[in-house]
Design a protein around this nucleic acid. Structure first.
Length: 444
RNA sequence: GGUCCCGUAGCCAAGUGGCUAAGGCAGCGGACUGCAACUCCGCGAGCGUCGGUUCGACUCCGAUCGGGACCUCCA
Protein backbone atom coordinates (compact mmCIF):
# COMPACT_ATOMS: atom_id res chain seq x y z
CA UNK A 1 0.00 0.00 0.00
CA UNK A 2 0.96 3.60 -0.50
CA UNK A 3 1.47 6.14 2.27
CA UNK A 4 2.26 9.79 1.86
CA UNK A 5 5.39 10.37 3.88
CA UNK A 6 5.52 13.92 5.20
CA UNK A 7 9.29 13.87 5.45
CA UNK A 8 9.87 13.07 1.78
CA UNK A 9 6.62 14.66 0.58
CA UNK A 10 5.95 11.70 -1.61
CA UNK A 11 3.74 8.70 -1.81
CA UNK A 12 5.79 5.69 -0.80
CA UNK A 13 5.11 1.99 -0.71
CA UNK A 14 4.71 0.97 2.89
CA UNK A 15 7.26 -1.57 4.07
CA UNK A 16 7.28 -2.31 7.79
CA UNK A 17 10.48 -2.94 9.71
CA UNK A 18 9.18 -6.37 10.76
CA UNK A 19 7.17 -8.09 8.09
CA UNK A 20 3.97 -8.70 10.05
CA UNK A 21 4.05 -5.83 12.49
CA UNK A 22 3.29 -2.14 12.39
CA UNK A 23 4.75 -0.05 15.18
CA UNK A 24 3.12 3.29 15.36
CA UNK A 25 3.04 6.24 17.68
CA UNK A 26 0.68 9.19 17.66
CA UNK A 27 1.23 12.29 19.76
CA UNK A 28 -1.58 12.38 22.26
CA UNK A 29 -3.36 15.14 24.11
CA UNK A 30 -2.29 17.35 26.94
CA UNK A 31 -4.83 16.49 29.57
CA UNK A 32 -5.93 19.79 31.03
CA UNK A 33 -9.35 20.09 29.43
CA UNK A 34 -12.03 18.18 27.55
CA UNK A 35 -11.07 17.52 23.96
CA UNK A 36 -12.64 19.54 21.19
CA UNK A 37 -13.75 18.28 17.79
CA UNK A 38 -10.41 19.27 16.27
CA UNK A 39 -8.60 17.02 18.73
CA UNK A 40 -11.00 14.31 17.64
CA UNK A 41 -9.76 14.24 14.06
CA UNK A 42 -6.45 12.42 14.69
CA UNK A 43 -8.17 10.27 17.32
CA UNK A 44 -10.53 9.09 14.61
CA UNK A 45 -8.15 9.00 11.68
CA UNK A 46 -5.28 7.11 13.29
CA UNK A 47 -7.79 4.71 14.78
CA UNK A 48 -8.83 3.96 11.20
CA UNK A 49 -5.19 3.53 10.21
CA UNK A 50 -4.79 0.97 12.96
CA UNK A 51 -8.00 -0.78 12.01
CA UNK A 52 -7.03 -1.01 8.36
CA UNK A 53 -3.62 -2.47 9.11
CA UNK A 54 -5.29 -5.00 11.36
CA UNK A 55 -7.74 -5.82 8.59
CA UNK A 56 -4.76 -6.51 6.38
CA UNK A 57 -3.45 -8.94 8.96
CA UNK A 58 -0.75 -6.92 10.64
CA UNK A 59 -0.15 -6.92 14.35
CA UNK A 60 -0.34 -3.25 15.23
CA UNK A 61 1.46 -1.90 18.26
CA UNK A 62 -0.29 1.39 18.71
CA UNK A 63 1.01 3.85 21.26
CA UNK A 64 -0.30 7.31 22.04
CA UNK A 65 0.83 9.26 25.05
CA UNK A 66 -0.84 11.55 27.54
CA UNK A 67 1.01 14.73 28.37
CA UNK A 68 0.12 15.01 32.02
CA UNK A 69 2.79 17.47 33.10
CA UNK A 70 3.06 20.86 31.52
CA UNK A 71 2.26 24.52 32.15
CA UNK A 72 -1.36 24.16 31.18
CA UNK A 73 -1.94 21.22 33.49
CA UNK A 74 -0.24 23.07 36.31
CA UNK A 75 -2.24 26.25 35.69
CA UNK A 76 -5.44 24.25 35.64
CA UNK A 77 -4.50 22.51 38.88
CA UNK A 78 -3.90 25.83 40.60
CA UNK A 79 -7.15 27.28 39.25
CA UNK A 80 -9.24 24.34 40.35
CA UNK A 81 -7.34 23.74 43.58
CA UNK A 82 -6.53 20.20 42.59
CA UNK A 83 -3.28 18.34 42.23
CA UNK A 84 -1.80 17.94 38.76
CA UNK A 85 -2.46 14.23 39.07
CA UNK A 86 -6.12 14.81 39.84
CA UNK A 87 -6.49 17.13 36.87
CA UNK A 88 -4.79 14.60 34.61
CA UNK A 89 -6.85 11.70 35.87
CA UNK A 90 -10.06 13.60 35.36
CA UNK A 91 -9.30 14.55 31.79
CA UNK A 92 -7.78 11.22 30.84
CA UNK A 93 -11.03 9.62 31.89
CA UNK A 94 -12.92 12.26 29.91
CA UNK A 95 -10.69 11.60 26.91
CA UNK A 96 -11.48 7.91 26.98
CA UNK A 97 -15.19 8.67 27.27
CA UNK A 98 -14.99 10.97 24.26
CA UNK A 99 -12.87 8.55 22.23
CA UNK A 100 -15.44 5.83 22.77
CA UNK A 101 -18.26 8.18 21.86
CA UNK A 102 -16.71 8.89 18.48
CA UNK A 103 -16.08 5.22 17.86
CA UNK A 104 -12.34 5.01 18.45
CA UNK A 105 -10.79 2.16 20.31
CA UNK A 106 -9.19 2.98 23.66
CA UNK A 107 -7.38 -0.31 23.87
CA UNK A 108 -3.82 0.72 23.19
CA UNK A 109 -0.76 1.60 25.18
CA UNK A 110 -1.11 5.12 26.56
CA UNK A 111 1.99 6.05 28.55
CA UNK A 112 1.99 9.15 30.71
CA UNK A 113 4.86 11.55 31.13
CA UNK A 114 4.76 11.13 34.91
CA UNK A 115 5.30 7.39 34.51
CA UNK A 116 8.31 7.96 32.27
CA UNK A 117 10.15 10.57 34.29
CA UNK A 118 13.21 8.45 34.94
CA UNK A 119 13.42 7.51 31.26
CA UNK A 120 13.12 11.14 30.25
CA UNK A 121 15.85 12.16 32.68
CA UNK A 122 18.21 9.45 31.54
CA UNK A 123 17.45 10.33 27.92
CA UNK A 124 18.49 13.92 28.62
CA UNK A 125 21.61 12.65 30.38
CA UNK A 126 22.51 10.72 27.25
CA UNK A 127 22.05 13.86 25.19
CA UNK A 128 24.39 15.68 27.59
CA UNK A 129 27.01 12.94 27.39
CA UNK A 130 26.95 13.04 23.62
CA UNK A 131 27.34 16.79 23.58
CA UNK A 132 23.92 17.56 22.17
CA UNK A 133 22.65 19.22 25.32
CA UNK A 134 24.02 21.85 27.63
CA UNK A 135 23.14 23.14 31.01
CA UNK A 136 22.68 26.81 31.86
CA UNK A 137 21.93 27.48 35.50
CA UNK A 138 19.43 24.72 36.25
CA UNK A 139 17.97 24.51 32.77
CA UNK A 140 19.03 22.16 30.01
CA UNK A 141 18.80 22.96 26.30
CA UNK A 142 19.21 20.98 23.11
CA UNK A 143 21.96 22.14 20.77
CA UNK A 144 20.09 22.36 17.47
CA UNK A 145 23.14 23.54 15.55
CA UNK A 146 24.71 20.07 15.86
CA UNK A 147 21.96 18.48 13.79
CA UNK A 148 22.68 18.76 10.12
CA UNK A 149 19.19 17.79 8.98
CA UNK A 150 17.37 20.12 11.31
CA UNK A 151 14.27 21.40 9.52
CA UNK A 152 13.97 18.47 7.12
CA UNK A 153 10.47 17.50 8.13
CA UNK A 154 8.93 20.94 8.11
CA UNK A 155 10.94 22.09 5.13
CA UNK A 156 12.64 24.90 6.94
CA UNK A 157 16.15 26.13 6.79
CA UNK A 158 17.90 27.14 9.93
CA UNK A 159 18.61 30.57 8.47
CA UNK A 160 14.93 31.12 7.67
CA UNK A 161 14.02 30.11 11.15
CA UNK A 162 16.48 32.54 12.67
CA UNK A 163 14.97 35.36 10.67
CA UNK A 164 11.52 34.35 11.75
CA UNK A 165 12.36 34.05 15.40
CA UNK A 166 10.44 37.05 16.67
CA UNK A 167 9.70 36.29 20.24
CA UNK A 168 11.45 34.52 23.02
CA UNK A 169 14.97 35.72 22.59
CA UNK A 170 16.16 33.76 25.54
CA UNK A 171 19.62 35.05 26.15
CA UNK A 172 20.55 31.95 28.08
CA UNK A 173 20.45 29.83 24.95
CA UNK A 174 23.47 29.46 22.68
CA UNK A 175 21.11 29.67 19.72
CA UNK A 176 17.54 30.96 19.69
CA UNK A 177 16.41 27.73 18.03
CA UNK A 178 17.65 25.57 20.88
CA UNK A 179 14.78 24.10 22.80
CA UNK A 180 14.24 23.27 26.44
CA UNK A 181 14.90 19.74 27.63
CA UNK A 182 14.68 20.40 31.32
CA UNK A 183 13.31 23.45 33.01
CA UNK A 184 13.99 24.53 36.57
CA UNK A 185 10.86 25.77 38.23
CA UNK A 186 9.28 26.27 41.59
CA UNK A 187 5.71 26.49 40.33
CA UNK A 188 3.67 23.32 40.42
CA UNK A 189 4.86 19.77 40.54
CA UNK A 190 8.58 19.10 40.14
CA UNK A 191 10.97 16.18 40.04
CA UNK A 192 14.54 15.93 41.23
CA UNK A 193 17.14 15.63 38.51
CA UNK A 194 20.91 15.95 38.08
CA UNK A 195 20.25 19.59 37.19
CA UNK A 196 18.00 20.37 40.11
CA UNK A 197 14.29 20.37 40.81
CA UNK A 198 12.21 20.92 37.73
CA UNK A 199 10.29 19.28 34.96
CA UNK A 200 10.95 18.21 31.41
CA UNK A 201 10.27 20.23 28.29
CA UNK A 202 7.57 18.99 26.01
CA UNK A 203 9.73 17.59 23.23
CA UNK A 204 11.51 14.78 25.04
CA UNK A 205 8.60 12.70 26.28
CA UNK A 206 7.71 11.17 22.93
CA UNK A 207 11.28 10.25 21.99
CA UNK A 208 11.96 8.82 25.43
CA UNK A 209 8.81 6.71 25.24
CA UNK A 210 9.56 5.54 21.73
CA UNK A 211 13.07 4.76 22.86
CA UNK A 212 11.85 2.65 25.77
CA UNK A 213 8.97 0.93 24.07
CA UNK A 214 10.26 0.47 20.55
CA UNK A 215 14.02 0.92 20.83
CA UNK A 216 14.19 4.24 19.06
CA UNK A 217 12.74 3.38 15.67
CA UNK A 218 9.14 2.96 14.59
CA UNK A 219 7.30 2.49 11.34
CA UNK A 220 4.82 5.32 11.55
CA UNK A 221 4.74 8.48 13.57
CA UNK A 222 1.54 10.47 13.42
CA UNK A 223 0.05 13.69 14.63
CA UNK A 224 -1.54 16.93 13.59
CA UNK A 225 0.20 18.97 10.91
CA UNK A 226 0.55 21.90 13.28
CA UNK A 227 3.00 20.01 15.45
CA UNK A 228 5.37 19.18 12.61
CA UNK A 229 7.31 22.18 13.72
CA UNK A 230 8.80 22.36 16.18
CA UNK A 231 7.68 19.28 18.05
CA UNK A 232 8.28 16.56 15.48
CA UNK A 233 11.33 18.29 14.15
CA UNK A 234 12.73 18.24 17.66
CA UNK A 235 11.92 14.58 18.08
CA UNK A 236 13.86 13.83 14.93
CA UNK A 237 16.80 15.89 16.17
CA UNK A 238 16.95 14.18 19.55
CA UNK A 239 16.71 10.73 18.03
CA UNK A 240 19.51 11.49 15.61
CA UNK A 241 21.59 12.68 18.53
CA UNK A 242 21.06 9.45 20.45
CA UNK A 243 20.75 6.83 17.70
CA UNK A 244 22.08 8.55 14.60
CA UNK A 245 19.02 7.62 12.58
CA UNK A 246 15.52 8.90 12.03
CA UNK A 247 12.97 8.03 14.66
CA UNK A 248 10.28 6.98 12.20
CA UNK A 249 10.26 5.60 8.68
CA UNK A 250 6.95 7.23 7.79
CA UNK A 251 5.45 10.45 9.07
CA UNK A 252 1.75 11.02 8.73
CA UNK A 253 0.13 14.35 9.50
CA UNK A 254 -3.54 15.09 9.48
CA UNK A 255 -4.89 18.47 8.43
CA UNK A 256 -6.72 20.69 10.81
CA UNK A 257 -10.39 21.03 11.48
CA UNK A 258 -11.73 24.56 11.27
CA UNK A 259 -15.05 25.99 12.27
CA UNK A 260 -16.75 28.31 9.80
CA UNK A 261 -13.49 28.50 7.89
CA UNK A 262 -11.47 29.67 10.82
CA UNK A 263 -9.17 27.94 13.19
CA UNK A 264 -10.76 26.92 16.43
CA UNK A 265 -10.08 29.41 19.13
CA UNK A 266 -10.97 29.22 22.73
CA UNK A 267 -10.47 32.93 23.26
CA UNK A 268 -12.83 33.79 20.42
CA UNK A 269 -15.42 31.33 21.62
CA UNK A 270 -15.12 29.32 18.44
CA UNK A 271 -14.68 25.90 19.89
CA UNK A 272 -16.86 22.83 20.17
CA UNK A 273 -16.09 20.13 22.69
CA UNK A 274 -16.69 16.55 21.70
CA UNK A 275 -18.86 15.98 24.73
CA UNK A 276 -21.04 18.94 23.78
CA UNK A 277 -21.50 17.96 20.16
CA UNK A 278 -25.23 17.95 19.68
CA UNK A 279 -25.26 15.50 16.80
CA UNK A 280 -25.03 11.80 16.24
CA UNK A 281 -21.42 10.76 16.86
CA UNK A 282 -21.30 8.25 14.05
CA UNK A 283 -22.43 11.01 11.71
CA UNK A 284 -19.57 13.11 13.03
CA UNK A 285 -17.13 10.27 12.45
CA UNK A 286 -18.35 9.87 8.90
CA UNK A 287 -17.98 13.61 8.43
CA UNK A 288 -14.34 13.65 9.51
CA UNK A 289 -13.55 10.68 7.26
CA UNK A 290 -15.25 12.18 4.24
CA UNK A 291 -12.39 14.53 3.54
CA UNK A 292 -8.92 13.26 2.81
CA UNK A 293 -6.97 13.25 6.07
CA UNK A 294 -4.27 15.60 4.83
CA UNK A 295 -6.71 18.29 3.76
CA UNK A 296 -8.15 20.80 6.14
CA UNK A 297 -11.76 20.13 6.97
CA UNK A 298 -14.32 22.79 7.66
CA UNK A 299 -17.02 22.29 10.22
CA UNK A 300 -20.39 23.90 9.73
CA UNK A 301 -23.72 22.80 11.12
CA UNK A 302 -25.05 22.40 7.59
CA UNK A 303 -22.30 20.01 6.53
CA UNK A 304 -22.42 17.95 9.67
CA UNK A 305 -26.20 17.67 9.36
CA UNK A 306 -25.62 16.32 5.88
CA UNK A 307 -23.38 13.55 7.16
CA UNK A 308 -25.64 12.69 10.05
CA UNK A 309 -28.35 12.12 7.45
CA UNK A 310 -25.94 10.14 5.33
CA UNK A 311 -25.12 7.89 8.25
CA UNK A 312 -28.81 7.35 8.92
CA UNK A 313 -29.19 6.22 5.34
CA UNK A 314 -26.35 3.74 5.67
CA UNK A 315 -27.66 2.49 8.96
CA UNK A 316 -31.23 2.17 7.70
CA UNK A 317 -30.47 -0.15 4.81
CA UNK A 318 -28.09 -2.21 6.90
CA UNK A 319 -30.68 -2.55 9.61
CA UNK A 320 -33.44 -3.38 7.13
CA UNK A 321 -31.33 -6.07 5.49
CA UNK A 322 -30.18 -7.46 8.79
CA UNK A 323 -33.73 -7.77 10.05
CA UNK A 324 -34.94 -9.28 6.82
CA UNK A 325 -32.44 -12.07 7.19
CA UNK A 326 -33.11 -12.35 10.89
CA UNK A 327 -36.86 -12.76 10.29
CA UNK A 328 -36.06 -15.57 7.87
CA UNK A 329 -33.55 -17.13 10.25
CA UNK A 330 -30.95 -16.60 7.59
CA UNK A 331 -28.30 -14.62 9.49
CA UNK A 332 -26.02 -17.62 9.71
CA UNK A 333 -26.14 -18.63 6.06
CA UNK A 334 -23.08 -18.32 3.93
CA UNK A 335 -23.08 -15.21 1.79
CA UNK A 336 -22.13 -15.34 -1.82
CA UNK A 337 -20.95 -12.16 -3.40
CA UNK A 338 -22.38 -10.99 -6.69
CA UNK A 339 -19.93 -9.41 -9.13
CA UNK A 340 -21.24 -6.00 -8.05
CA UNK A 341 -20.35 -6.66 -4.42
CA UNK A 342 -16.94 -7.95 -5.39
CA UNK A 343 -16.34 -4.76 -7.33
CA UNK A 344 -17.39 -2.57 -4.42
CA UNK A 345 -15.15 -4.41 -1.99
CA UNK A 346 -12.21 -4.22 -4.33
CA UNK A 347 -12.58 -0.50 -4.89
CA UNK A 348 -12.99 0.15 -1.20
CA UNK A 349 -9.72 -1.62 -0.45
CA UNK A 350 -7.99 0.11 -3.33
CA UNK A 351 -9.03 3.44 -1.89
CA UNK A 352 -7.72 2.51 1.54
CA UNK A 353 -4.49 1.23 0.03
CA UNK A 354 -4.08 4.59 -1.63
CA UNK A 355 -2.86 6.54 1.38
CA UNK A 356 -6.02 5.87 3.37
CA UNK A 357 -8.31 7.62 0.96
CA UNK A 358 -11.31 7.34 3.22
CA UNK A 359 -13.28 9.78 1.08
CA UNK A 360 -13.21 7.36 -1.81
CA UNK A 361 -13.74 4.41 0.50
CA UNK A 362 -16.91 6.08 1.73
CA UNK A 363 -18.05 6.47 -1.85
CA UNK A 364 -17.91 2.68 -2.04
CA UNK A 365 -19.86 2.45 1.18
CA UNK A 366 -22.48 4.60 -0.54
CA UNK A 367 -22.40 2.35 -3.56
CA UNK A 368 -22.99 -0.56 -1.24
CA UNK A 369 -25.95 1.30 0.23
CA UNK A 370 -27.49 1.87 -3.16
CA UNK A 371 -26.88 -1.67 -4.31
CA UNK A 372 -28.29 -3.15 -1.13
CA UNK A 373 -31.35 -0.95 -1.39
CA UNK A 374 -31.87 -2.42 -4.82
CA UNK A 375 -31.64 -6.04 -3.73
CA UNK A 376 -33.25 -5.94 -0.31
CA UNK A 377 -36.78 -5.76 -1.76
CA UNK A 378 -36.22 -8.51 -4.23
CA UNK A 379 -37.02 -12.14 -3.54
CA UNK A 380 -34.49 -14.93 -3.53
CA UNK A 381 -31.56 -12.72 -2.70
CA UNK A 382 -30.73 -14.14 0.69
CA UNK A 383 -27.27 -15.35 -0.11
CA UNK A 384 -26.30 -12.16 -1.86
CA UNK A 385 -27.98 -10.05 0.81
CA UNK A 386 -25.99 -11.90 3.43
CA UNK A 387 -22.86 -11.11 1.46
CA UNK A 388 -23.89 -7.46 1.43
CA UNK A 389 -24.37 -7.53 5.21
CA UNK A 390 -20.95 -9.10 5.61
CA UNK A 391 -19.42 -6.41 3.45
CA UNK A 392 -21.15 -3.68 5.47
CA UNK A 393 -19.67 -5.20 8.59
CA UNK A 394 -16.21 -5.30 7.07
CA UNK A 395 -16.47 -1.63 6.13
CA UNK A 396 -17.88 -0.70 9.52
CA UNK A 397 -15.05 -2.46 11.27
CA UNK A 398 -12.41 -0.71 9.22
CA UNK A 399 -13.96 2.72 9.51
CA UNK A 400 -14.99 2.25 13.11
CA UNK A 401 -18.67 2.80 12.48
CA UNK A 402 -21.23 1.09 14.68
CA UNK A 403 -24.82 0.83 13.49
CA UNK A 404 -25.97 -0.53 16.84
CA UNK A 405 -28.20 -3.20 15.36
CA UNK A 406 -28.84 -6.41 17.27
CA UNK A 407 -30.86 -9.53 16.61
CA UNK A 408 -34.60 -9.31 17.08
CA UNK A 409 -36.23 -10.83 20.12
CA UNK A 410 -39.00 -13.37 19.70
CA UNK A 411 -41.44 -10.67 20.72
CA UNK A 412 -40.09 -8.30 18.06
CA UNK A 413 -40.46 -10.96 15.44
CA UNK A 414 -44.03 -11.71 16.46
CA UNK A 415 -44.86 -8.02 16.27
CA UNK A 416 -43.33 -7.77 12.84
CA UNK A 417 -45.25 -10.76 11.56
CA UNK A 418 -48.47 -9.36 12.98
CA UNK A 419 -47.83 -6.08 11.17
CA UNK A 420 -47.33 -7.92 7.90
CA UNK A 421 -50.51 -9.92 8.46
CA UNK A 422 -52.55 -6.84 9.23
CA UNK A 423 -51.34 -5.17 6.06
CA UNK A 424 -52.05 -8.24 4.02
CA UNK A 425 -55.58 -8.33 5.47
CA UNK A 426 -55.98 -4.61 4.80
CA UNK A 427 -56.64 -3.98 8.46
CA UNK A 428 -54.92 -0.64 8.26
CA UNK A 429 -55.92 0.65 11.69
CA UNK A 430 -54.24 -2.30 13.29
CA UNK A 431 -51.31 -2.11 10.89
CA UNK A 432 -50.71 1.52 11.76
CA UNK A 433 -50.77 0.75 15.47
CA UNK A 434 -48.29 -2.05 15.01
CA UNK A 435 -46.13 0.09 12.77
CA UNK A 436 -45.98 2.73 15.43
CA UNK A 437 -44.89 0.20 18.00
CA UNK A 438 -42.24 -1.20 15.67
CA UNK A 439 -41.01 2.32 15.09
CA UNK A 440 -40.90 2.97 18.81
CA UNK A 441 -38.77 -0.10 19.20
CA UNK A 442 -36.44 1.13 16.52
CA UNK A 443 -37.12 -1.79 14.22
CA UNK A 444 -38.69 0.18 11.41
C1' G B 1 8.90 39.61 7.08
C1' G B 2 10.00 34.03 6.13
C1' U B 3 8.05 28.91 4.90
C1' C B 4 3.91 26.20 3.12
C1' C B 5 -1.13 24.60 1.71
C1' C B 6 -5.73 25.33 -0.67
C1' G B 7 -9.44 27.58 -4.40
C1' U B 8 -13.70 21.75 -8.71
C1' A B 9 -21.59 22.59 -9.69
C1' G B 10 -26.33 26.02 -4.36
C1' C B 11 -23.51 22.94 -0.34
C1' C B 12 -19.84 18.81 0.83
C1' A B 13 -16.12 16.24 -1.90
C1' A B 14 -12.86 12.71 -5.19
C1' G B 15 -9.93 12.80 -9.45
C1' U B 16 -6.78 12.87 -14.25
C1' G B 17 -1.68 15.97 -18.93
C1' G B 18 -5.86 13.71 -23.97
C1' C B 19 -12.14 8.58 -23.82
C1' U B 20 -18.61 11.55 -21.68
C1' A B 21 -14.47 15.63 -14.53
C1' A B 22 -16.49 10.05 -9.33
C1' G B 23 -19.92 10.12 -5.32
C1' G B 24 -23.25 12.46 -1.62
C1' C B 25 -26.77 16.49 0.06
C1' A B 26 -30.24 20.05 -1.67
C1' G B 27 -33.41 21.11 -6.21
C1' C B 28 -36.40 19.48 -10.53
C1' G B 29 -38.99 15.41 -13.26
C1' G B 30 -40.67 10.29 -13.03
C1' A B 31 -41.69 5.28 -10.50
C1' C B 32 -43.20 2.46 -6.24
C1' U B 33 -46.94 2.89 -2.15
C1' G B 34 -53.57 1.68 1.71
C1' C B 35 -51.57 6.41 3.88
C1' A B 36 -46.78 7.98 5.40
C1' A B 37 -41.78 7.12 5.66
C1' C B 38 -38.08 4.66 3.05
C1' U B 39 -36.32 3.40 -1.75
C1' C B 40 -35.33 3.31 -7.03
C1' C B 41 -34.71 5.79 -12.11
C1' G B 42 -33.47 10.40 -14.88
C1' C B 43 -31.55 15.69 -15.04
C1' G B 44 -26.76 20.09 -13.60
C1' A B 45 -20.31 22.15 -13.68
C1' G B 46 -15.48 22.34 -17.69
C1' C B 47 -12.36 22.88 -12.61
C1' G B 48 -10.72 31.40 -8.92
C1' U B 49 -8.42 34.99 -12.74
C1' C B 50 -4.60 36.11 -16.44
C1' G B 51 -0.53 34.38 -19.03
C1' G B 52 3.21 30.42 -20.37
C1' U B 53 4.94 25.26 -21.60
C1' U B 54 2.65 21.40 -24.72
C1' C B 55 0.01 18.52 -30.58
C1' G B 56 -3.24 18.86 -26.15
C1' A B 57 -4.00 21.43 -19.18
C1' C B 58 -8.82 21.54 -14.79
C1' U B 59 -4.31 18.57 -14.05
C1' C B 60 2.80 21.27 -15.17
C1' C B 61 5.19 26.51 -14.67
C1' G B 62 4.64 31.86 -13.53
C1' A B 63 1.85 35.91 -11.97
C1' U B 64 -2.51 37.70 -9.68
C1' C B 65 -6.84 37.70 -6.47
C1' G B 66 -9.14 35.13 -2.39
C1' G B 67 -8.92 31.79 1.95
C1' G B 68 -5.97 29.21 5.50
C1' A B 69 -1.72 27.11 8.34
C1' C B 70 3.14 27.32 10.56
C1' C B 71 7.36 30.37 12.21
C1' U B 72 5.11 31.40 19.68
C1' C B 73 1.63 27.05 23.91
C1' C B 74 -1.83 24.58 20.59
C1' A B 75 -4.20 17.93 18.00
Amino acid sequence: MQIYNSITRKLETFTPIDKDTVNMYVCGPTVYNYIHIGNARPVIFFDVVRRYFEHKGYIVNFVSNFTDVDDKVITKAIEDEMTEMEVANKFIQAFYDDARRIGSSTKYLAPRVTEYMSSIISYIETLMEKGYAYQVDNDVYFRVGKIEDYGILSGRKIDDLKEGARIDVNTKKENPLDFTLWKATDVGITWPSPWGEGRPGWHTECVAMINDIFGGRIDIHGGGSEIKFPHHENEIAQNIAVHNHYIANYWMHNGQLNIDDKKMSKSEGRIILVKDLDYDYMGFRLFTLSTHYRSPINYTDEVLTNYVKEWEKVRRVYKQSFYKLDLNDALEIKGEQSPELKGIELKFMDAMDDDFNTANAITELQNLVKYTNQIVRQKDTESNLKAAIDLFETFFKILGLDPGVAKLTAQDKALYMAWNDARRNKDFDKADRLREELQDRGIL
